[in-house]
Amino acid sequence: AKEVHSESEDSDSERNSNMSNSSGGEDMDENAGSELDDDGDGDEDDDDYGDNDNDDEDDQEENEEDDELGGLFKRTTKKGEGRSGGPNDLDCAKFPIATGDAREFEEIYDLIKDCFVTGDWGTQDAK
C-alpha cells in the first residue's frame, strides 16, 4: 500500500486518488527521511564529481511512474529495471552494453580493427 501512496502525491486526476486506498502518513515519512538526510550529509557537500542528490532522483522516479494501466489501475512496481545507478538497483560491477544487439559484428569490427596486431600501427614501429 505504501507505493500507491507515494504516487498519489503527484497525481491530479480524481479517478486515481479514488482508486488508491486513501493516502496519509506518507508525506510525513518522506519529510522525516529528507530531514535526516540533510543532517547526515553535512561533510559531503564538496562533491565535485557531480551532484549526488537522491531527493531529486526520487521525485523524478515518481513522475515517471505516473502512468495508468487501462485508465483504472496504477503501476506500483518500478519501471525500467535495467537502468543502473538508482539507490535501490542491482549492485553489480558489470557495465551493461547500451547499444544491445543493434550493432552487427562487421560494424563493431570496423571500429576496432586497429586494436589488433593485424591492424594499422600508425606512427608506431611494429614490434
Binding site: 535526516l36 538526510d37 547526515g40 550529509d41 561533510d43 538508482g86 539507490p87 535501490n88 538497483d89 549492485d91
Partner: peptide
C-alpha cells in the same frame, strides 16, 4: 559526526 550515511542497497 564522521558517520557517513547513504541510501539504498545499490
Amino acid at each position: 559526526s564522521h558517520v557517513l550515511t547513504y541510501e539504498g542497497c545499490n
